[in-house]
């Protein structure tokens, strides 16, 4: 038996002993009451006989009176003690019942709480409401956006390699329009390969710019070519390659329309003397000459002049490219 349980058991034993003593006293009182009745009956019989047989009746009466008083007082005492004990016992039982009722109420309340919890859990399990996680708007990225992480890694939200390719192509196209790189990539080579071939149908915008540039003076054109951030410089790079086609790198055959006209040879000879002339002017002139050549000589036949003119223009174009490249950087 542990030390903690010992006082409880001693209290319980004391409680049992006290209750046993009380019950013993109660039973003794009840027995005394029962005996008192028999004693009273026997005393009454004794006094009746003695009163009838004895001569000294007065003494018997007085003795009987004293006995009756004492018997009555004794009976009242007995009844008083028994009634008190009965009342005490009843009150104790009522208190015990009240405590038991309180404990049962507590157990019922616990059970009700458990039942309510079970009902609530059952409802939450049975209900089809899905609690979606809620985020703030600033933490939500729309689909298809990419964010660069702190270590340079890409946090992917629908990003694909096609976007990178597109972006690279776009950058290359911009570079190709801004400057003409000497060791050109495939795109630039493609552009360069396309550009020298004089298309019979030039775009209307370019024709518009050509008209505009044709109205400008020569000084203005020279100024524009010197400034690296102007459009004429850009065009000078891209358009300088148009009239001149390199011998080896040109994939397509040169248009045989170009060299046959004497008017075309005029501007072709102009390039070495004026290496820094505006490309738009030259292009306009070349394009104009080519159109004239096309109109005048629809069938090409004289390739030697054309080849010489192209070679001379190629040299001039290389010099121009070097100058523009140095101007840019």
């Amino acid at each position: 038996m542990t030390a903690s349980s010992f006082p409880v058991s001693s209290e319980a034993s004391n409680y049992d002993e006290v209750s046993m003593q009380q019950s013993m006293l109660f039973s003794d009182c009840l027995k005394d009451l029962k005996n008192l009745r028999t004693q009273l009956y026997s005393a009454a019989e004794y006094f009746e006989l003695s009163y009838s047989n004895d001569d000294q009746k007065q003494i018997v009466v007085e003795t009987l009176q004293d006995y009756a008083v004492k018997a009555l007082v004794n009976t009242v005492d007995h009844l008083g003690s028994i009634t008190y004990k009965v009342n005490d016992l009843l009150d104790a039982k009522v208190d015990e019942v009240s405590r038991t009722e309180l404990r049962i109420s507590c157990i019922e309340q616990r059970l009700r709480t458990c039942q309510e919890y079970m009902d609530r859990e059952g409802l939450s399990q049975q209900s089809l409401i899905i609690n979606t996680p809620k985020f703030h708007k600033r933490y939500i990225l729309p689909a298809g956006e990419t964010t660069n992480g702190p270590d340079g890694a890409k946090l992917k939200y629908g990003c694909s390699l096609d976007d990178e390719d597109d972006w690279r192509q776009f950058k290359n196209a911009i570079r190709a329009t801004i400057r003409d790189t000497p060791p050109a990539s495939n795109n630039v080579q493609r552009n360069r390969g396309r550009s020298p071939s004089p298309s019979p149908r030039p775009p209307p915008q370019r024709s518009g710019t050509f008209h505009f540039t044709s109205t400008t003076t020569k000084k203005e054109l020279d100024k524009r070519t010197e400034s690296p951030n102007r459009f004429p410089l850009v065009r000078s790079g891209s358009l300088a390659s148009r009239p001149v086609t390199p011998k080896g790198s040109r994939p397509t055959t040169p248009n045989p329309i170009w060299p046959s006209t004497p008017s075309f040879a005029g501007p072709g000879r102009q390039f070495p003397s004026e290496p820094r002339k505006s490309a738009s002017m030259r292009l306009h002139a070349g394009r104009k000459n080519s159109q004239e050549v096309e109109q005048q000589h629809p069938h090409p036949g004289k390739g030697k002049h054309l080849l010489k003119a192209l070679l001379s223009r190629r040299k001039s174009r290389k010099d121009e490219m070097l100058y523009t490249y140095l101007d840019e950087y």
């Binding site: 009843l90 009522v94 019942v97 009240s98 049962i104």
Partner: peptide, 24 residues
């Protein structure tokens, strides 16, 4: 008279206790 009163009170108390015990 006292015994009669005691009987009545004791009976009522016992009846109340019996009712509580039934409920419990």
């Amino acid at each position: 008279d006292f015994l009669l009163q005691f009987e009545s009170t004791t009976k009522s108390k016992l009846a109340n206790l019996n009712e509580k015990l039934d409920l419990l």
